[in-house]
Design a protein around this nucleic acid. Structure first.
Length: 772
DNA sequence: CAGAGTGCCCTTTTT
DNA sequence: GGGCACTCTG
């Protein structure tokens, strides 16, 4: 194996003989490379059978990449290798050892929504008011208990009535989940670890099988996951954990940095390797990132360094409001594009999904292709979940939550009263809803229930012989679901049909890719798919939350919304846990270190939240940027207008003598070596964006009054030019052909409702329309 | 019983 | 600004 491309510490980790090893791998330090080369070496040179190696990651995508790289290094070597996420690994091992673990072999996996529905139902049975005790909160408490490996019986309540109540719900919840043959996300780890710890034979068997174990992103493991890792390493102790405590960003779902920081405590003989050479970013970016993270306490001491060039200064841009910020993003992307950069190499980050909307609008207006990672996930869409629910009932009729979801979709005349009675019957007799249907003979609605059940029985028996890929089509037909969508001529129904088609397509793909495709394995795959697994395709700007960005890298990174209480979102109040702020700081660190070449930070003086105006102070993470490492654009006292929103507050970096008005417009993103470009910032915002409203199509520039007033955003919605479009007009669209305008809608993005023969009504931005 | 309409809460972040 | 649960009406 050729190790010549590795640096010293990397080589040390790859060649480490056996026993426990912890690798502190800084951002961009070649971590994945080390893991894959280590596995490759084990297989190719140490003769370890691939099936005796377990590699655990946090996303399916990371697992897939690892597999792919390994296949490249050792052709055929990845075959049999156990690579997966914590959840998928446990799901598989649970299914293989269902009996020993005390779970049903054909269990279904409940996602958060299903889990909450179950909690709600249990609370209903206990006569508890969901308004006083939000099911979501209870579900959170149950999840936390499972992360801590705490059963309902073990739950300490100390007489506290609230916790007593949680425990009661938790107890009944567990009972119902068992009856339904369902496991929630937390169960996958919790049940399996329980089994390993209680069943010595099982532990010996599985821990004996895995000669080597490698765990990625170890800083994000929770307590249950730690117990899992330790149990599986208990026989051979060949355990390698890799991670970076500075990139631990999942505290809110139980991640505990102590797991990596205290690894040496758990394994006193552990070797420690630190990867501190960065191969990704410029020196400048690393310096700026370090200035943010170094303020945290209780870190493993380390500092990234690089042989890469110094690099451009970071850009800090102050914007009026979020729309202004969107415009600044658009300008920046266009400028990069003009310089020949690929849009696939540009990413825009934000703290919460809600911030994406305005950015999207801006990019769409400017005709810039983009993709959003996360947000409303494909598998979370109602129609997709409906079809999946049908499939789950086919697999497991005891799955009450799925059954209740679809029993009256499409409408079958089974109403609320009927369903309430059904649920009560099931609760009383301790049976599943499916079985309770039989008890309900006689009345009118009962007939309809019986018909539903007959239909499902038919589908169930068909499913036994039918190839997996033919099943969804049959379900859609027999259930009347497709008919329901056909009868609906709204554009939404079209979109739903397309989504279902996509789902059917993914089932077909799944069937092709697997030797023995089963319904159970497909459903498991789908439920455990993660945001990060979404495909990247084509030259598009990527929009995502910082959380979703972990593990990725781009030439250009724009971090938006850098305002106090936005990013950092939590921990700004001294009453809060200081750990909150430290996590926000890590999040900023993760964001900054995604950038290879260029880092652009922006914040808005004013932001609209829930439709309300909220003034924003620049984030402390922006203030941490060393002054000389950035160009500060638009950062100066405002001339007027702000007083009404809040008292004027000077920016800490306000420079009394800014250079005279704008040497260069635009961003000064350099293609050549013009070193001074960045040191001559445009004096104010009006300059760097160019005079006109770049992403207002056919619209007029902002009014003269707007620029210095906090309320200037109002201008966008006033009197926009409809480009001559009016109801009754015939127009042409590149995709839908010729149609008739029904309604026009003024606004920042002028739109029109158009009826297209064969497509139905579509609401479209007028820029895509031409008179026909 | 179904569909339309209204008020409420909301927001981290996700396997 | 939006999604969702609940209420009102046909």
């Amino acid at each position: 194996m050729d190790l010549s491309g590795l640096n010293g510490p990397q080589r040390e980790a790859v060649l480490h003989d056996g026993g426990p090893l912890v690798v502190f791998a800084g951002a961009g330090s070649g971590k994945t490379r080390v893991i894959t080369m280590r596995i490759a070496r084990l297989v190719a040179e140490q003769g370890v059978a691939p099936w005796r190696i377990l590699a655990v990651t946090f996303t399916n995508k990371a697992a897939g990449e690892m597999r792919e790289r390994l296949e490249h290094l050792v052709p055929g070597g990845a075959k049999g290798l156990q690579v997966g996420t914590f959840h998928s690994t446990c799901a598989r091992l649970l299914r293989l050892n269902a009996e020993a673990a005390g779970v049903k072999k054909d269990f279904v996996i409940y996602d958060d929504q299903d889990q909450q529905a179950m909690v709600k139902r249990v609370m209903g049975d206990l006569n508890l008011d969901p308004k006083q005790l939000p099911p979501k909160q209870i579900a959170g408490a149950i999840n936390r208990a499972k992360q801590e490996m705490t059963s309902p019986e073990e739950m300490a309540t100390e007489g506290d009535p609230y916790r007593e109540m949680v425990r009661r719900i938790y107890t009944l919840y567990e009972e119902r989940m068992g009856k339904a043959g369902a496991l929630d996300f937390g169960d996958l780890i919790y049940r399996f670890v329980r089994a390993l710890e209680k069943n010595e034979e099982l532990r010996q068997h599985l821990a004996g099988r895995f000669l080597h174990q490698l765990v990625d992103e170890f800083q994000d493991t929770n307590h249950a996951q730690l117990r899992l890792v330790r149990a599986l390493a208990s026989v051979h102790r060949n355990l390698v954990v890799v991670g970076d405590d500075d990139q631990s960003i999942y505290r809110w779902r139980g991640a505990d940095r102590r797991n990596i920081l205290d690894f040496r405590g758990a394994y006193p003989d552990a070797r420690v390797v630190k990867l501190e050479q960065n191969y990704r970013s410029t020196q400048r970016i690393l310096r700026v990132a370090h200035s943010v993270i170094s303020k945290n306490h209780d870190r493993e001491p380390k500092e990234l360094w690089t042989e890469n060039p110094e690099g451009d200064k970071v850009l800090v841009v102050r914007c009026e409001d979020e729309r202004d910020e969107a415009r600044m993003v658009v300008r920046g992307v266009q400028e990069l594009q003009n310089k020949g950069a690929s849009l696939a190499e540009v990413a825009v980050f934000y703290r919460t999904h809600a911030q994406s909307r305005v950015l999207e609008e801006g990019l769409r207006q400017a005709n810039l292709p983009y993709r959003i990672v996360g947000g409303v996930r494909f598998y979370d869409r109602a129609e997709v979940k409906d079809l999946l629910a049908y499939l789950r009932v086919i697999q497991n009729p005891g799955d009450d939550i799925s059954l209740m979801r679809v029993v009256n979709v499409p409408a079958r005349g089974i109403g609320k009263t009927t369903l309430t009675r059904l649920l009560e019957d099931a609760a009383r007799t301790g049976s599943s809803v499916w079985d309770a249907i039989d008890e309900n003979a006689g009345s009118g609605p009962a007939r309809k229930l019986a018909q539903f059940k007959e239909m499902m029985e038919r589908l169930r028996s068909s499913a036994k012989t039918l190839p997996l890929e033919d099943l969804p089509g049959m379900v859609l037909d027999e259930s009347g679901y497709l008919e329901m969508l056909r009868a609906d001529d709204s554009p939404e129904a079209d979109a739903r049909r397309e989504n279902l088609q996509e789902l059917v397509g993914s089932i077909q793909q799944f069937a092709e890719e697997h030797d023995e495709p089963t319904l159970a394995s497909f459903l498991e795959d789908v439920t455990l798919a993660s945001v990060a697994d979404e495909q990247s395709d084509g030259a598009k700007v990527t929009l995502m939350t910082v959380h979703a960005a972990k593990g990725l890298e781009f030439d250009t990174v724009m971090v938006t919304g850098l305002e106090e209480r936005m990013f950092p979102m939590r921990g700004t109040d001294p009453a809060e846990d200081p750990e909150e702020m430290e996590e926000e700081r890590r999040l900023a660190y993760v964001a900054f270190t995604r950038a290879r070449q260029r880092l652009i930070l922006s914040y808005a003086s004013v932001r609209h939240i829930y439709g309300q105006v909220r003034p924003g102070d620049p984030s402390r993470f922006v203030l941490d940027v060393p002054r000389e490492d950035a160009v500060w654009i638009g950062v100066e006292p405002r001339r007027s207008g702000m007083a009404s929103a809040r008292p004027y507050r000077p920016d800490p970096w306000d420079r009394p003598s800014l250079p005279a008005r704008g040497g260069r417009g635009g961003w000064g993103i350099r293609s050549g070596r013009d070193d001074d470009a960045y040191d001559e910032p445009a004096r104010d915002h009006a300059d760097f964006g160019g005079a006109d409203d770049a992403w207002q199509p056919g619209g007029k520039p902002k009014s003269a009054r707007g620029r210095d007033e906090a309320e200037s955003y109002v201008d966008y919605s006033e009197g926009s030019d409809m480009g001559g479009f009016a109801p009754g007009m015939r127009v042409r669209h590149p995709k839908f052909g010729v149609g008739e305008v029904r309604r026009v809608e003024q606004g920042m993005v002028p739109k029109a409702d158009v009826i297209f023969p064969g497509w139905g009504k579509k609401t479209l931005a007028i820029q895509y329309l031409t008179p026909a």
